[in-house]
Write a protein that binds this DNA or RNA. Sequence first.
DNA 1: TTGAAAGCGCTAACAG
DNA 2: CTGTTAGCGCTTTCAA
Lengths: 324, 324
Amino acid sequence: VITSKEIAEICKISRGTVDRALNNRPGINAKTKEYILKVAEEMGYKPNLVAQSLVKGRTMTIGVVVLDLNNRFFSQLLISIERKAKESNYFVYFTVANSDSEEEINCINHLVSRQVDGIILYSVNQGKDFLNFLDKINTPLISVCNYISDDVPFIGIDDQQAIKEACKTILDKGYTSIVYVGLALKQHHITALEDRLMGFRKAMQEMKFHGEIMVSTDITKETDLSGLLTNKKTAFLCCNDEVALKLLNVLNHKGIQVPQEVGIMGFDEIDVLDFVRPQLATVNYPIEEVGRQAVDTLIKIISKEDVPQKLILDHKVVNGESLQ
Amino acid sequence: VITSKEIAEICKISRGTVDRALNNRPGINAKTKEYILKVAEEMGYKPNLVAQSLVKGRTMTIGVVVLDLNNRFFSQLLISIERKAKESNYFVYFTVANSDSEEEINCINHLVSRQVDGIILYSVNQGKDFLNFLDKINTPLISVCNYISDDVPFIGIDDQQAIKEACKTILDKGYTSIVYVGLALKQHHITALEDRLMGFRKAMQEMKFHGEIMVSTDITKETDLSGLLTNKKTAFLCCNDEVALKLLNVLNHKGIQVPQEVGIMGFDEIDVLDFVRPQLATVNYPIEEVGRQAVDTLIKIISKEDVPQKLILDHKVVNGESLQ
DNA sequence: TTGAAAGCGCTAACAG
DNA sequence: CTGTTAGCGCTTTCAA
C-alpha cells in the first residue's frame, strides 16, 4: 500500500506534480510524468478513493434502498442499477429495508452519512413527516416504481392503467367472475400496490362489472377462496407475480386446475416466470429500463441538470397459458 | 449539513470536546456533553463516515464480487451477506464481474481503492498469477462456494461428495442410465462446477456404472439430447438448478414428460424451485449460512483473529417429483 | 475536564 | 513546468 505522498518522496519531487502525473492533468513535463507513472506502476499504487472523496466532496457512489430482496423484482432492478452505475463510473451501496419503515429511515440516514451522491428509493414510508425528512437529508434522490409525492422525482409505470388493461384482457377472454388478489403489508402502504387496487376498482366501475377483492398479508394462509364457490368462469388477477405464483401453488395443492377450472394473472413479468408452468399471463414491467433510467436521471440531478419530475414508462399485457 | 467543527464553533468549545460528546468518550463534563448533544440533535448533525474512514483507516465496508446476479443463487447469497453485515455494522459494496476474468480483476481493484475492509469473492479467476494478485492487494479476503487455493480461506460445501450422493439417489431409484449435464463458461473455469463434474466421474467409477456427460455453454441450444435415444430409464443430473430448469423447459418443449419419461435432478435448491412443477429433486446448498459465515469469518480476519482456512458446510439431497 | 495541534491521503490554488 | 500551502471532516495525541 503506497501513497502518492510516498511516491513524491521516492521521486524526490513535490506532491502537486505527482498528482498532475497520476491524474493526467496538464502542466507537467512529459519525462517527469513518465518517470512518476513508472514508479507508481512498479510500486502498485492505487489511489485512495476515500481520501479523494473527502477532498472532492463526492464519493461517486449511489445508494439503493429496497424493501426486500426476496422478491425477484428487486434483484432484477438491482442488477440493472449496478450495471448502469458501473458504466457511469459510479459504485453502488445497497441496503434492504425489510419492509420496515424505521429500518428504511435508518438505511437512508446511513447512506447519507456515507456521503452517497444520490439515492434510489423504493419506499414504504409516505406522508408529510417522511417528505420533510427526505428534504432535510439534502441528498439527490429518486423514487422508483413506488410513487411518493410530486416533490420527489419518480420513475415507473402507470399502475392503474396497466391493471385496467389486465382487467380488459381477462374479460375479453370471457371470464364472468374476476377476483383481485391484493397484498397488504402489516403496517405500511406501498403506493404501487394501492394504485393497482385502485385501478381495479375503477376498471370494474367503468366496465360495470362486479369484481371481488381479496387482500391479505399472505395468500398462502388464505384458505377461503370464496371466489371459487360460484360456478362462473373465474379469473384471479394478482397484484404481482410473486402473489400469483403463491396462489398457483395453493390452487395446485387444492387440486384446482389452472387454467381449466380458474384463470390466473400476475403482474411484473419477473424473470422466473420462464420456469413456471402453466405460463403465467402477466403485465410486463420494464424493470431493466427503470433501473437504467433511475441511474441516468439521478446522475443528472447530481450534476444539477434538469430532469422531468415524472417518467412514466410503457407497460404491456403479456398473454399466457394461465388464462384461457 | 453541519460538521462537528461547526458545532464546536456554535458551542464555543473545542473540536476535541465535541468529539468526546458525539462519540461517547470519557473525560467530559456531563453538562457540556448534554449541551453539545442537544445542539447536534437540533442541527441534524450526521457524522461524515468518509472522513471518519480516512482517519481511522477502515471503512466498515465489505466488498462482494459475484459472477452474475441473474442466477438466483447469487441473489440469495447477497441477501444473506447484506443482512449479516448490517448486524455487524458493516456496509456492503457489491459488484458484478459478469463472468469475465478481467472485469473481476477490475472489480477487486476498485474495491481495494475504495478501501473496503475485506472482500468476499466468488471468483472465475484461478492460477498463480491470480493468487499473486490477491496477495498484493493486501486486503482480507475470503472465497465462497468456489475454491481458489489453500492460501485463500474458503467457505462452501464438499461438491464432489454431494454429487456422489446425488448419483446414489438416482441409481437407488432404479434409473439405468444417467446423464450429467454440465455448464461451461466460454473462457473460464468455475471450481465448484469442475468439482461437481469430477465428483460425477468418480461416483461412476466407484459404482461401476457408465454415465454420460454433456457439457455445454447453454443447454437450451443443445438440441441433441442423445441420452434420450436409449430405451433405458434415464435421469439427467444437472450441475445446478438453473441448468435443470432450462433443461426442464427444453424437455417440455419437446413434449417429453418429466418424470414419466425421464428423470431430472438439480443442484443448489434455489428458492424459485418453490414455484416449479414438477418439484425438482436437488441438493440443498446452505446458501444462507455460507453468507453468514463468510461475513463472520471475514470480520474475524479483519480483526486479526484466527479462522479456519476451510469451512465445509453440510449439504443435503432433496427428493422431488422430478425423479420417480 | 478541556484545548491545541498534527495528521489520515488527496486536491486545488497560487506563487515561483 | 514545479513547489508550497491550505484544507476536506474527523480523531488522537499531548499539554494545560
